[in-house]
Simulated scan of single mutants.
Amino acid sequence: MAYISTTFPSNQWIIDSHLIQERASFPAISTQNGDILVCGGYIEYERYLETDSSCEIYSSSNREWRTVTDLNVGRIGHTLTLLPNGRSILTVGTMDNIDGCTAEIYDIQTDKWAFVPNIMNILRAKHTATLLRNDQVLIVGGSIAFTGISSCSVQLYIASSNTFITTGSLNTCRYDHTTILLSDGLSVLVIGGRHSIHDINGPPHISMPTEIYINGFWSYIVGDMISKRSHFAAVLLSDGNVLVAGGIDSSKNATSTVEIYNSTTETFSLVQPMACARSHFTLTRLPSGQVLAVGGKSSTTNNCLRFSELYDPNKNQWKSDRLLNNIRWGHNAILLNHSVLIIGGSAREQNGLIRACERYDL
């Protein structure tokens, strides 16, 4: 078995420019020129969390945030997708009862948001949106606002006509799930998720079977995850397989277990676990092919979560890496040209929102 390094290094992440607005549970996306757009999410107002409509952009050239035009409606549980033309960004859904059917397009050059005239067929929040190689955006599942019920509905956004069309439904309805675009650019793996908000106090979402989307249809894979989990992180590896790590296990505890989905055999196999048990964290594949795990919550050892971890797929080895300045969860991690930027999130202890951003230089 590969060796886990538990010698914690002393070097820290680099403190970067802070967000203008502290926020959590928001999407972030890298634009064609390497800038980063964040929109919506939760903000704190008079000690209460509120849905936000504000947006800001991080400039990769001067490492500063600036405000841009607000969304037309406040959004939480929404997605951001950079469209094929490189100048437009699609945002879809929210937990609002009315606006959950809506989508907007952001024009980067004019700094304007406009509603997509053709609304979606259901209210959606906590769905996923994946840009396919054919330039269509696959929008999968989601929670039907205010019902707490998950959806099996899947739609495609067609950028050329600025419309949504319906495609094959999921076999198992879900929201709060993870989707990974596989190497062919057209097949999509969907992992985990939740049936209903009413199961939030029950066992975690351990019964959700993994499905794969191919040519408009969904099918269950040959062999499902070995260690059932929720609130995990997943990333596509350089060899076309998928790394799934951490999360909450069936006993409601954070786990350090890790497994790899083999895209050829459609089966999972356990690999070396992380040094830290963590959920609600991020995984980022670096240009080297290594994978960076950052932040999280629910670990029994707070000190452990201050350290990022690096996974080397060739050696099947995790090693503890640089020290975070802020322990956080519900943040975003965006790969820039020569660094990874960690954005916002919630503080580890008091669950307060934070503006702080920090950088991991490669």
Rank of each mutant, 00 (worst) to 15 (best):
N262G: 07
Y3V: 07
S183P: 00
Q21E: 11
G289M: 06
S308F: 02
R355F: 01
H198Q: 08
Q317F: 01
P9V: 01
Y3L: 08
I36E: 00
N85L: 14
R322Y: 10
G344E: 00
R285A: 13
A114T: 10
K228W: 02
G345C: 03
D135E: 13
I108M: 11
I149K: 05
E104T: 07
A125R: 08
A159N: 06
D99Y: 09
I149V: 03
L156S: 03
G100A: 15
L286K: 09
I43Y: 01
G93W: 11
N118K: 15
L341V: 05
T6E: 14
S169F: 02
A233S: 12
R66C: 07
N118F: 10
S10N: 11
L243A: 07
T110K: 15
S339L: 00
T81D: 07
I191C: 05
K297A: 15
L90S: 14
L324Y: 02
A159E: 03
A234N: 08
F268A: 04
G295K: 04
M1A: 10
S250M: 13
I200M: 12
W13V: 02
T179N: 03
L292R: 03
I57G: 01
N85I: 13
H195A: 13
N201P: 04
A293L: 04
S196G: 01
S17C: 09
L83Y: 14
D184F: 00
C357A: 00
R322C: 07
G148M: 03
N326C: 06
L286H: 08
T301E: 10
N171V: 07
I221K: 00
C55L: 05
L19Q: 10
N162R: 15
A2E: 14
A293I: 01
T69H: 01
G40V: 00
I180F: 03
S230K: 04
L83Q: 15
C39M: 08
M120W: 07
Q350K: 02
S238V: 11
G247S: 12
V38M: 06
S238R: 08
T130E: 12
C276R: 09
I149Q: 04
R124C: 02
Y261M: 04
A233E: 11
M1V: 07
N302C: 06
S269L: 12
P84A: 14
E104P: 05
